[in-house]
Design a protein around this nucleic acid. Structure first.
Length: 116
DNA sequence: CCCGTGACCGACT
DNA sequence: CAGTCGGCCACGG
């Protein structure tokens, strides 16, 4: 299956058939984040029943083979900041802003109504 | 099986 | 507010 044909959650799972169970869980959870909203590495970790695996979640998203179908740009740090290399981080920030998420001082304003 | 590597986090200075 | 520190964890070598 080609990346361009990945549309549904099932497609995501099939496309990632050879990846680990953990990584699939991370990508599926991220795939569910609605447009205009964001989540955090911690919250994703909680959603997949692995509350203490935020670092592993970040590692997985770092290797996201389905960007932007799996919207890893909607996953931010606990303080609303964007992790990773400066250039890539800025790119994800602009992408999120374009989706209507408010930011300030380069960080997402984490309000309950925009948090997934 | 041990070890290094991170897009992390909360507490603390 | 910025910088440190220790704890955490999946993954690959």
């Amino acid at each position: 299956m080609r990346k361009a044909d990945v549309k549904t959650e099932k497609d995501v799972i099939e496309y990632l058939k050879d990846w680990s169970v953990f990584e699939r869980a991370v990508y599926v959870a991220t795939f569910r984040i609605p447009n205009g909203k964001v989540s955090t590495y911690s919250r994703i970790a909680e959603k997949i029943a692995r509350p203490k695996a935020q670092r592993a979640v970040a590692n997985a998203l770092h290797n996201n083979p389905l960007y932007p179908i799996v919207p890893c740009h909607r996953v931010v740090k606990s303080d609303g900041g964007f992790g990773g290399e400066e250039k890539a981080a800025a790119g994800r920030r602009r992408h999120v802003e374009r989706e209507g998420v408010p930011t300030r001082h380069g960080r997402v304003i984490l309000r309950d109504d925009i948090l997934y």
